[in-house]
Design a protein around this nucleic acid. Structure first.
Lengths: 244, 244
DNA sequence: GAGTGGTCTAGACCACAAT
DNA sequence: TTGTGGTCTAGACCACTCC
């Protein structure tokens, strides 16, 4: 037994939802049915289903059954992660389409952002990230002049800007803003969005050491993506006086 | 047995960490020890510890033991603040219009959220927050049954749900999701939004001590509001064995 | 080799929902 | 009344770490 049974069951459920076999609000098979189907004890199924409920993929109602929750991909804001990891963690396959990879001349905005004179060459990429061939994020990224040369040599179908930056300019600080926007026609088409579907835009700046390393616009289809996170206020677990 | 054993064990562990009895990197008692201590089967302890590991409170190392994880990055990531404070900090005046203040009967969704049987009375409020007379947030909030009575007596033109909850159910934990949505007609009108203007929705759950205290939908006009934050990554990774 | 977590079983009793 | 999920038990075997 290589892969644990409960993980196989989780994958099966996630796949069934992803492929549209079970849809939002659908009742999925009961624990007993899944146990029979997979030839395992009910407790094993229980673990799989319970974990998916904790992850908000499913909703369980005692006495009634287990339902498919509203499906929407989620990005964790707690940490800066690669969209690739997020997609793959959900059991989908990630692919990147490189739309643009070039250097641009810094205009007013970029020169201000990177504190460089106008006309400085800034590395720029437009990448479309796909989850199982469905577009999930349009990444528009600019990198600092000192990174530009190496940046332009990357093959972003094989690596990601995230991986590149992790190595070349380790993250020291970041800030971001999240907005709901009406997408431009361009963005809407690339992300295969419905007419009138709002876009979720994350604008992020990252710093390494002392300089700004990168600036990114990350566009997402509003109906298929959300940002999630959690929060614990000042966990004062390190105050020796609070030991009662 | 009112409260499930695995939850009691989870609470015991979290409390031990919070009170500083166990600290970052500490080895906590083994599953067998906890099972003996709480007089339960090892599988019951396993569930408690496993869930805390999934929640990143603990780190488990096969063959070695279970350790206290690095305390949550207390980043100001979407700090939980009152919309009133945010508005006033920007130099505008804050006012609240109370649209609804009532108790509702818990249906499938609310009963699941608050872990109560259906039909339980849940406090519910719809509030419109204005910045200089311009609507900026529509707050739809539900509070736990034990808070409902007091909640309904509040005058939310004078205080805020945030203030009420801070006093009655101090925040222990929260999670949230941010989405871009097409607003309902109702929401669009209340927030004085343009046709086709997307809305930015924040869904937040908050816990005090052990129970979920509150659930809120916070709607904002996409053109007039954004969420911002910043963070510094965790400076080191946790490897309990690296003490050498 | 002793101890730890990782996983699984085949039962069980309960509260609850649907009927 | 039947079926569902919620929880729990008392074992078990395995892979792994540490000594």
């Amino acid at each position: 037994m290589q892969r644990p049974a409960y993980l196989k069951i989780k994958t099966h459920i996630v796949e069934s939802i992803r492929k549209g076999r079970w849809r939002e609000g659908d009742l999925i098979p009961s624990e007993n049915e899944l146990a029979a189907q997979f030839q395992v004890a009910r407790m094993t199924v229980n673990r799989a289903v319970q974990e998916l409920a904790n992850e908000r993929v499913l909703v369980r109602v005692k006495g009634a059954g287990t339902y498919v929750a509203e499906p929407r991909a989620a990005t964790t804001l707690l940490e800066i992660r690669s969209i690739k990891d997020e997609i793959e963690e959900r059991g989908a396959t990630h692919a990147t389409r490189v739309l643009t990879l070039e250097s641009v001349s810094a205009g007013v905005e970029l020169s201000g952002l990177f504190s460089m004179p106008r006309g400085t060459r800034i590395g720029h990429a437009r990448l479309l990230h796909l989850a199982d061939d469905e577009p999930l994020q349009l990444e528009e990224r600019w990198v600092a002049p000192e990174l530009t040369e190496a940046f332009l040599e990357q093959d972003f179908t094989q690596t990601t800007p995230h991986a590149f930056l992790s190595e070349r300019a380790p993250l020291a600080r970041a800030d971001y803003a999240i907005e709901a926007r009406t997408p431009t026609v361009d963005v809407r088409r690339l992300l295969a969005m419905r007419a009138n579907e709002p876009a979720l835009l994350l604008v992020r700046r990252t710093w390494s050491e002392r300089d700004m390393a990168s600036y990114a616009h990350l566009w997402h289809p509003g109906s298929r993506h959300r940002f999630t996170g959690e929060f614990c206020p000042r966990t004062r677990s390190l105050d020796p006086r609070s030991t009662s």
